[in-house]
Simulated assay, not measured.
Amino acid sequence: MRKVIIPTDFSENALNAIKYAVELLKYERGEFHIVHAYAEKVYENEEVVSRAILDEVRKVEHEQSKEKLGNIKSELQHISPNPNHNYFYTATFGILVDVVNDLVEDINADLVIMGTRGLTNDRQITFGSNTMQIMKYVRCPVLSIPEGHSYTAPKWVVFPTDFMLPYKRRELKLLYTMVASYRSLITLLYFSENQQLSFRQQDNKKFIEEAFKNVELEYVTQPSDDITAGINHYLQNQSVDLLVMVNSRHSYLENILFQSTIDKIGLQIQKPFLVMQNLNRD
């Protein structure tokens, strides 16, 4: 049983991510937790000038959220009446990243799926603030779906790596199950001036090969000091179906994500983006 959390702000991007999720797992037994957290909206309401008004706005927002979740339920019953899928709908007064992280722990979630941007949909940035926070801090793989992107089978996956991390078996298994049925190609993209791998890198490379023993692997080494620019250049005009990176200390992705402000994030991704966290989880 695959356990998936799908945050929603009721935007078109969020609904698109839900549709992508049910299509991605249409051949698997799935438990989908569709979650809306509305504390920020209540706190930012300019009419809230007293505790009594806050409580009233909170109550109204909760009822409206339940109604909108009901609309999503009706739409899913129409577009994806899959007997292997169970859906759970939650509206809660909380901060989204905390709500999602707590739910990950409570249900031992396998995956979070969400749109790259939400209701504000600022096209000047690649990732919205909620998506960035969840990719950085939630202890679970996160799959972000670009605006308007329809599901396509992940037949070509690009996985930038420096082979320095001893990856966690559970997260590699998640990726394996996503690609195993499609005769997919995984391109392991390594940025270095030096073709020679250290013993640590050789061992980690071997571990990856064992995890994907029935999947075609391709190794591409490119000279580049700017990892972000290198990834963007490689993806340009390529028919890649999925980009995969690992968020861990001293990883490629840590250097990209942990910038001072969101607008400095240079990845120009118009493909589904899977962020694995490389954490010990049962």
Rank of each mutant, 00 (worst) to 15 (best):
R29Y: 14
E210L: 13
E28S: 05
T90P: 01
F199Y: 08
L54K: 09
Q222A: 07
K41S: 14
Y89L: 00
K205D: 01
V138T: 08
V112D: 02
I79K: 02
K173V: 07
T92C: 09
F199D: 15
M178A: 11
R249H: 15
S50R: 08
R249G: 13
N84I: 14
D282W: 07
Q124I: 14
N13P: 01
K41R: 12
V4Y: 04
F159V: 06
K168F: 03
F163Q: 02
H250K: 15
V240Y: 09
Q277P: 08
F10E: 04
Y182E: 05
I227C: 03
L165N: 05
L25V: 09
M1H: 13
Q236N: 10
H62C: 05
T116E: 10
E75R: 11
P146D: 03
S11F: 14
R281L: 02
E44H: 07
K206L: 10
R183G: 15
N214K: 10
E147S: 06
I107R: 01
D162A: 06
K155I: 05
D98K: 05
S181A: 14
I95S: 13
L54N: 05
Q195L: 12
N121Y: 03
F258L: 12
G115L: 07
Y87Q: 10
V4C: 03
Q270V: 09
L76S: 05
L111S: 02
L279A: 09
T177C: 09
S251P: 03
S11Q: 12
S80F: 03
V49F: 13
I256S: 09
V275F: 07
Y20D: 04
F207R: 13
Y252N: 02
N194M: 14
S239M: 08
F10H: 00
Q259D: 07
L253S: 02
K213A: 15
P146R: 03
D203H: 12
W156N: 08
D102A: 04
Y27H: 14
N237H: 10
E193R: 04
A37R: 00
Y43Q: 09
I79A: 07
L103Y: 09
L172S: 05
T261P: 02
A37F: 02
S192F: 10
E254F: 09
Q196R: 15
R281P: 07
L197V: 02
V244N: 00
E40H: 11
E23M: 14
V240C: 13
K19T: 03
H233K: 13
F88V: 11
R51F: 15
D55G: 02
L15C: 01
V240S: 11
P83H: 07
E75M: 12
S74Y: 05
V100E: 04
R249A: 14
Q268T: 13
Y137E: 10
R139M: 13
F10W: 07
Y137P: 01
S181N: 12
S11R: 11
V240L: 12
M114D: 03
L188S: 03
V48E: 03
Y176D: 13
M164D: 11
L267W: 08
D106A: 11
L103K: 08
N82C: 12
W156T: 12
T126E: 04
L143E: 00
P272H: 06
L143W: 00
G70Q: 10
H149T: 14
L174T: 00
G148I: 05
I79S: 14
T8Q: 04
T120Y: 06
D106F: 05
A180I: 12
N278E: 06
H250W: 11
I186S: 05
N82Y: 06
D122S: 01
L15F: 11
E147K: 06
Q77G: 15
M245A: 00
Q77A: 15
N84M: 15
